[in-house]
């Protein structure tokens, strides 16, 4: 595969996490903007014959849209917490355990975005490091026995 192709693949992967966030924020923004636009169109459709019904039909959708916007924001926060914050915290905890107590690094979670790649990368590095340590330890013990 060419270098250009590889970087394209990388970019495709990088867009997954950012893309989801951008898409979700765009949905919220679009909902709010379109609701306001449609409410204004409803208002302007009545011409000069303004009545309480017209005000009601203009104001109510905007209030409801903001309510739904809040709901979507809450959902977005929940998903960010579940899909991004929680895995990062698990990775950090596992790394700390690995560094401090030498526990095996084993964090697994589903997904196909950058966080999964990062986790796989750290896992490989940790495994490599563990093997390197054991080899050094083995070499040291061999050296000691030779000296004796």
């Amino acid at each position: 595969m060419s270098l250009n192709g590889k970087s394209k693949l990388k970019n495709k992967g990088r867009l997954k996490m950012r893309g989801k966030l951008i898409l979700s924020i765009s949905v919220i923004a679009l909902v709010l903007v379109l609701t306001v636009v449609l409410a204004i169109m409803e208002f302007s459709r009545s011409g000069i014959a303004l009545s309480s019904t017209v005000y009601y039909r203009t104001v109510t959708p905007v209030i409801i849209a903001f309510g739904v916007g809040m709901l979507l924001l809450a959902l977005l926060l929940f998903f960010i917490l579940t899909y991004y914050i929680r895995p990062i915290r698990r990775i950090l905890d596992a790394l700390e355990s690995y560094n401090t107590y030498g526990k095996k690094y084993s964090v697994t979670f589903e997904g196909d975005d950058e966080l999964t790649k990062l986790n796989t990368g750290i896992s490989d590095l940790a495994e490599e490091n563990r093997q390197l340590r054991s080899r050094i330890a083995a070499l040291k013990s061999k050296q000691k026995s030779d000296e004796c």
Partner: peptide, 9 residues
């Protein structure tokens, strides 16, 4: 929008 939102994640 509320229905499609969970599908993003």
């Amino acid at each position: 929008s509320v229905g499609i939102f969970p599908f993003i994640f």
